[in-house]
């Protein structure tokens, strides 16, 4: 059996971890490399770095910490944020990233997904979908947003998911904008809709606040993987605790 994956996500800006990570015994809790090493020791199944560096000039900082992480941590590493073209993807893969996560650029030029998956293989192309429930009697139920959730697109989330799957995406990182940051749990309905209608794996994101939330999204939501940020960073739960809980509930995970 393929196990369900538990994936800590780190927001990184100018080469530093943002959202104060509360790790004890770390020389530098702001260093993404050190934090990644902690999650590696805890047997996290993958790590995702979301680079929220605004300025383009500072992109080299990101390549540098990706390189340093990949040299010390022997687990799958995904990097997202600000990826615009094939050159950006190539630079990240050469620095040691295993997968790249693309959002805005994919919506602006859907051809990018096709070209990137042909060039580098579907296995390394993750499409990040930021979906928000539409209010009132609109025809679409979830709409996708770009530019870090600032710009609505009018595009139906599931239609978009099907399009990127056809274009060769290897996986979808599905974030519920409604639940993100609430700690009230993942959007189960959204996640299940994606998982049931697509053949590629779905990583659920947004809303993790306790152990049951992770259990629910992996079972009721049928997600292949659950991403969480703050519950891990603030040490409310360790990856190990999450996995022990899931095993007790009968979910297959790797210990």
């Amino acid at each position: 059996m393929l196990t369900k994956r538990i994936i800590p996500c780190l927001d990184v800006k100018d080469g530093r971890v943002v959202k104060g990570v509360k790790f004890l015994n770390l020389k530098d809790a702001g260093d993404p490399v050190e934090v990644a090493q902690v999650y590696d020791r805890e047997a996290a199944d993958e790590i995702i770095f979301l680079d929220i560096t605004a300025s383009f000039e500072k992109r080299n900082i990101m390549l540098d910490f990706v390189r340093r992480t990949a040299e010390t941590v022997f687990m799958p590493l995904t990097v997202g944020g600000g990826i615009r073209n094939l050159d950006d993807i190539r630079d990240l893969l050469n620095a040691g990233t295993d997968k790249v996560s693309i959002n805005t650029a994919a919506v602006k030029s859907p051809e990018l997904i096709k070209k990137a998956s042909e060039k580098f293989g579907s296995q390394c192309i993750v499409v990040a979908v930021d979906a928000k429930r539409c209010q009132g009697g609109k025809q679409i139920k979830w709409e996708i947003y770009i530019n870090g959730g600032r710009t609505p697109t009018g595009i139906d989330a599931l239609d978009w998911g099907k399009r990127v799957e056809d274009a060769g995406a290897g996986e979808i990182l599905l974030t519920s904008m409604d639940m993100d940051g609430t700690k009230d749990g993942y959007d189960i309905e959204l996640t299940r809709m994606f998982s049931e209608n697509l053949d590629i794996p779905i990583i659920a994101s947004g809303g993790a606040g306790n152990l049951e939330h992770l259990y629910k999204v992996l079972t009721d939501g049928k997600a292949d993987a659950a991403l969480a940020a703050s519950i891990f960073h603030f040490r409310e739960y360790s990856v190990k605790q999450v996995k022990e809980y899931l095993i007790k509930k009968g979910v297959e995970v790797r210990m």
């Binding site: 393929l2 196990t3 994956r5 290897g170 996986e171 053949d199 590629i200 292949d224 993987a225």
Partner: peptide
């Protein structure tokens, strides 16, 4: 209903 690619940790 299993997903393709086969992606993740397996025995």
């Amino acid at each position: 209903g299993l997903k393709i690619p086969h992606m993740g940790w397996n025995k």
